[in-house]
Design a protein around this nucleic acid. Structure first.
Lengths: 236, 236
DNA sequence: GTATAAAGGTTGTATATACAAGTATTGCAG
DNA sequence: CTGCAATACTTGTATATACAACCTTTATAC
């Protein structure tokens, strides 16, 4: 058998989610319904739901049913940049200042990361995130214009790009590179820091089903007391 | 039922591994053997093995059997500091210079991280890691003297503390905090960098079954071209 | 001895069934 | 309308069974 039965059911469910037919928190058919629909035993349908739950794509509650998980719970690492939520959780006020939103020609480094030819067009945004009106993170984002054609029509003073992109192109994967840098002068000015202060720089690539969605460069003052450049990653 | 049957079998296997009775790559009893031993069905024994495999604790091969996984594969995040392997993988030469190895009285911050009273004793080591004889990472490590009484008898010019600790106290968990800092002057001297160069600082706590084993502070020049302060974390 | 074939053991997939445990809904009594 | 009990539904645990796929060892033929 080239494909397993539970694999086919998993794919069926994933397609519904990735196409947006089943949004976050939508109820997924029960084990018995799937078993009947695919003409398999309940245990086989169960396995499909079980494995997707372990991957964080579904959430199950005994007695209640199975539901599409919120993206936030999909990967703890993706929380790194859900900066609005992070700040809210501290009881502080988050705001964002959209500095740039246009189309640019990407240089070699970004082209490689985006997986497109050098010299291609890409959407680009620069946003400054503030916590209680204090600058805390500088976000430079390159967005695949084929996959997200409506990017330039957004207002990122109101919603974060992360929220917007999650809605139009559900993330399937992400990778991060972290390094310590001295930010360029202009960037220091935005962040209101001295030029000799070290910053954490996170380069992130995100994928949807169709390919690379965006490349993001996040720069935060490294001083822990400012609460911005502070990342905790835990195993399991 | 307060405990599930598969949970009891999982615990049985974990105990064998954590106590060292079943070392890395040891063969674990087959599904049928466990089923008979615990008087359960094969599917129940299977579930125990399955879940431990998903956690990366066991490795299974169809037809061959089930084996205890190597620790390296347990958590991709733990690879961050397996610096010797990382350097070898680049085809470079790794060496280590043990600068300090003694017992110290811990200050408040370390006491909290170690989970012991402030003013307690702890073993302490300072090691400089070099890649092709170029300083690349400064490691400060506080080790629980109750759990690892033989720490001071080691020679960390020969093996890394990570290798030693993995052997005597198998890790069950780890957490990391990352920030960007300017290293103190003496540390800059060891790393042969200017005092204004930003560094990545990783604070790591590791646990074994009995409690916190060690607190490690790793400082690496943040410049990616030196290849030391470069961390990649990937989801799934 | 070597190569091949057979046999046995082990994990992987799938089914049918039973009961336990938890949630949501329905219906009834007040 | 409210409160409570009964009911139906859903997920969780467990068993017994069958066959497929794969690996290792053993036995056989040359």
């Amino acid at each position: 058998m080239v494909l397993t039965k539970f694999g086919i059911i998993k794919q069926f469910i994933l397609n519904k989610i990735e196409s947006g037919i089943w949004p976050q928190n939508a109820k997924v058919p029960s084990e018995n319904e799937l078993a009947e629909q695919f003409n398999v035993s309940r245990m086989t349908a169960r396995r499909a739901l079980q494995e997707l739950t372990e991957q964080g794509i579904l959430v199950r509650t005994q007695g209640a049913g199975t539901f599409v998980a919120t993206f936030k719970s999909q990967s703890s690492l993706l929380e790194i940049n859900n900066i609005a939520d992070e700040i809210s959780a501290r009881g502080h006020h988050h705001s964002a200042k959209q500095l740039i939103l246009n189309a640019v020609t990407v240089d070699d480094e970004i082209a490689i990361l985006l997986g497109c030819p050098s010299g291609s067009q890409s959407f680009y945004s620069e946003i400054l995130h503030l916590e209680n009106d204090i600058p805390i993170q500088f976000e430079q984002r390159y967005v695949n214009d084929k996959l997200v054609p409506t990017y330039l029509a957004q207002n990122f003073n109101e919603i974060t790009p992360h929220e917007f992109l999650s809605a139009v192109a559900p993330l399937t994967e992400a990778s991060h590179e972290i390094e310590a840098v001295l930010a360029p002068v202009e960037l220091c000015r935005h962040l209101a820091i001295e030029t000799h202060q070290p910053c954490l720089q996170v380069k992130r690539r995100t994928w949807a089903k169709q390919g690379v969605v965006s490349v993001t460069i996040l720069t935060s003052p490294g001083n822990k007391h400012r609460l911005g450049g502070h990342i905790v990653v835990s195993t399991n």
